[in-house]
């Protein structure tokens, strides 16, 4: 278990996640926290990022039994949105 933790920490230090991706993970985490007042484990969080963004805007997406609004953003349909 200890070696797993060290490897994970080493991995994150050596290969920091790109900023855009980090923002998406944080956004999902924040959305779940705001909607359902709960923290979700990192493995579920990482597995849920694609689902939270690959959806129809304004539709609800279930992440760890918590329904949040789809996080897909600007599609260019509104000028300057």
């Amino acid at each position: 278990m200890r070696s797993l933790t060290v490897a994970l920490a080493l991995g994150l230090m050596l290969f920091p996640l790109p900023q855009a991706h980090a923002g998406k993970v944080a956004s999902v985490k924040q959305a779940v926290k705001e909607k359902c007042s709960k923290e979700i484990p990192i493995d579920i969080l990482l597995a849920s990022v694609v689902r939270a963004y690959d959806c129809q805007p304004n539709q609800e997406v279930t992440i760890a039994s918590c329904k949040i609004k789809c996080l897909k953003g600007d599609s260019g349909n509104v000028v300057g949105q």
Partner: peptide, 19 residues
């Protein structure tokens, strides 16, 4: 982008047997 998730996972997999 999904592949980026694999980095820590792969590390987790290889860590126990790594020397």
């Amino acid at each position: 982008m999904q592949s980026v998730f694999l980095v820590p996972v792969v590390l987790l997999a290889v860590a126990p047997s790594a020397n």
